[in-house]
Computed example of a mutant assay.
Amino acid sequence: VENASRHEQSVVYGIPLEKMNQGQKQPGALRRHWDRGRALAAVISCVSIYGITISLFTPLLSLILESRAVSSTLIGGLAMMTPLGVILGSFFVPRYLQIFSGRRLLLIGIGFEIFLIILLLAMSDLASWFVIRFFMGVTGSVLFIVSDSWVAEITPDAIRGRVMGLYNTVLLFSFAVGPLILTMTGTSGVLPFVWGILLMVLAALPLIFADRYVPESSGNRSFNVFSFTRVAPLLVFGCVAVAFKEMSATSLLPV
């Protein structure tokens, strides 16, 4: 009798209670998968659209300066300001990521980038452009560091390599779209700058569908770019070489 009673308690309408509990847990798991996929799509879309803006303005400014008979040395110096801003900005972004949510920090970066594009359009002197391009690099460090850490942290270990591969493939594809837009807008007038502003506004829209993100692991806050260089010098050298080649090609080949 006792065994029969236990059997009745463990079975409801012919379905074991363990399977019923698993069925109740599935909606929660599906919801987490849906939220994760939605956040990944939003972040990848945001950064990819920003990549179009980068590939639009790098050759655009070089061509504008060439039309003003500016030397190739100064054109190369202007291009150098962006990666310099990225390097210096990388020291501060992780700290602010602990204070603000990832989505808010991305939106701040997008808003600041729009402001800088307006300044590029409003100011024509070369000295101002050097300062503006430096802060554009700082903005780039915000967008790339937040998005990279966000994608890497919310992606399950089993598919992280494939997701990061997709993320980088889409981003590299976006770098090819900017020069294509430039062939349609030309390099004179306000139209290419308006395109840049519209692209940044468009980059903010996917973040509406992303949840709040704060890194789960605080890690060692004293670990920075130079610390990583000591840990993986060959990897850092490879990244520097590729970045040097890309910036040289996009900045100087048009002129």
Results as ranks from 00 to 15, higher is better:
Asp157Asn: 09
Val194Lys: 00
Arg160Ser: 07
Val142Ala: 10
Arg162Asp: 13
Thr183Arg: 11
Asn168Gly: 12
Ile154Met: 08
Val151Ala: 07
Ala203Thr: 02
Pro206Arg: 00
Gly178Tyr: 12
Phe193Ile: 01
Val177Glu: 13
Gly196Trp: 06
Leu182Tyr: 11
Pro179Thr: 15
Thr169Ser: 14
Pro206Ala: 08
Val201Ala: 10
Leu198Trp: 07
Leu172Ser: 15
Gly196Asn: 10
Leu198Asn: 03
Leu180Arg: 07
Ala203Lys: 01
Ala204Met: 07
Val194Met: 14
Leu166Lys: 07
Thr187Cys: 06
Ile145Glu: 09
Leu199Trp: 04
Leu191Asp: 11
Phe193Ser: 01
Val190Trp: 14
Ala176His: 11
Leu198Met: 13
Phe173Trp: 04
Gly189Glu: 12
Thr155Arg: 02
Val170Cys: 09
Thr155Phe: 06
Gly140Tyr: 00
Ile145Lys: 02
Ile181Glu: 09
Phe144Ala: 12
Thr183His: 12
Glu153Met: 01
Val177Tyr: 10
Gly165Ile: 04
Met184Leu: 15
Gly186Thr: 02
Ser188Ala: 15
Ser188Cys: 02
Leu182Trp: 12
Val146Tyr: 09
Thr155Gly: 09
Met164Asp: 06
Ile159Gln: 12
Leu172Met: 12
Leu180Lys: 11
Gly165Met: 09
Ile159Leu: 08
Ala152Asp: 11
Leu180Ser: 13
Tyr167Val: 05
Phe173Asp: 05
Asn168Glu: 14
Val177Asn: 08
Gly186Gln: 07
Ile154Lys: 04
Val146Ile: 07
Ile181Ala: 15
Leu205Phe: 07
Val163Lys: 01
Ile159Ser: 13
Pro156Gln: 05
Leu182Pro: 03
Leu198Tyr: 05
Trp195Leu: 06
Gly165Tyr: 00
Met184Ser: 15
Val151Pro: 02
Ser149Gln: 13
Thr187Ile: 15
Gly178Ser: 12
Gly178His: 11
Leu172Val: 03
Leu143Ile: 09
Ala203Trp: 02
Leu191Ser: 15
Ile154Ser: 10
